[in-house]
Design a binder for these strands. Sequence first.
RNA 1: GGAGAGAUGGCCGAGUUGGUCGAAGGCGCUCGACUCGAAAUCGAGUAGACGGCUGAAAACCGUCUCGUGAGUUCGAAUCUCACUCUCUCCGCCA
Length: 429
Amino acid sequence: MLNAKVIRANPQKVAQELQKRNIDGVLDEFLQLDEKRRSLLGRVEEMKNFRNTSSQQIGKMKKEGNDAQELMEKVREMGQDIKKIDAEIKDIEKEIENILLNLPNIPHESVPVGEDEEGNIEVRRWGNPRKFDFEPKAHWDIGSDLDILDFERAAKLSGARFTVYKGPGALLERALINFFLDVHTQEHGYKEILPPFMVTADCMVGTGQLPKFANDMFKVEGQDMFLVPTAEVPLTNLYREEILKAEDLPIYLTAYTPCFRAEAGSHGRDTRGIIRQHQFNKVELVKIVEPQKSYDELEKLTADAEKVLQLLELPYRVMLLCTGDMGFSAAKTYDLEVWMPSYGSYKEISSCSNCEDFQARRANIRYRLSSGRKLDYVHTLNGSGVAVGRTVAAILENYQQEDGSIIVPEVLRPYMRGLTEIKRSKFTS
RNA sequence: GGAGAGAUGGCCGAGUUGGUCGAAGGCGCUCGACUCGAAAUCGAGUAGACGGCUGAAAACCGUCUCGUGAGUUCGAAUCUCACUCUCUCCGCCA
């Protein structure tokens, strides 16, 4: 959420920034409502002031045995008017909030302006795509042939965009989860959290999924709850409505959760394989930090996510997203894209963002500055560390052999009972 | 699911015959004194949001906030109702 005072103080500047994100016009409505609110507020506060002083006076008069009937009558009448104006103000505030909650974050100055992913900038590459001396297969064919991914039966259970993992496939997924968590907790200093997989609407507002993106999520029927679309939601909202101590910052959190996404509006995209699913696993990284450090922290967080790809020896590149391709809450985002031989291109596997105080305002997460005792909003960051399903896809494709088997990346072997290779077998488990 | 207790400032915790209560006291924190320095001790200060004033801020003034929402009243932390959450006991259950 943007700071209303900032919008009021320099509306043209804010409008200019929002234009980079293809948002136009809404600010005029905001300014109008804001003006109206303040004028009504001034009026009603004056009336309340009169009521307060009068009430005290009445108390005094009664104590002294004087008749306060006339004044009481007057204040009672005024009370009716106050009630009316208060209601009017409340309506206006609701409208204002509605506008503010639907405005995206303002991009950081280092973010390139652009319409869509064409405007993204490649920052760096790591690793070299392998040269195959045979025609590499797509991961869905590899998975089906090895009988470790079962798309048909998944459809029977749950419909499209679900996958059943079997035998070594299930083991691989589980190994990756443990591997990622171990790296981030043991080497990068994150605290492991196992949060609920369902959260309230308030949490969704806090991190920016609501009110605008209700269609992207699964709502629990008859309840004010949603299935988490990412662990970013429960992790960031852990500290909702709290005042943190400066000495407690920075907070580094990591969590494994399944992620549930409706994928409305992505019909026809990535229909095959496990790239785009209604349910997928992810290990997430979240940081809660002091404002002046958040951009250093973003670089570190991105490096932490990159590390697991390096350890898996999967080639990737880092993209700086342009204004048109960034998520709603982000001020700056790096995407990690892993090399996918069957696509002949890089595919997003992680997204690392600095949301600055955008989520902190919505979720009301503040901290007390060590110098002085003023409060300020924290900055929040999040990043995939990384998407597990897409990592499986990348491993299958990058580590495939001509005979259809898969070499298990070395770092994963301890997590897979020493398994070095995945072959087709009735009996593998 | 049944019965009971509770929700107050960064934390703990007083405050229910309604009227200087935004709130005693303690802890913590900040500043100062003492000290070579620290601890201990002593003194002072210390809720937030919104709005006015201001270029901005501070100071100052006002409004609101004692779980949330509504109500009674000239006036509510204190009374009424609904809801949410926490705790204890009973039942059921992985």
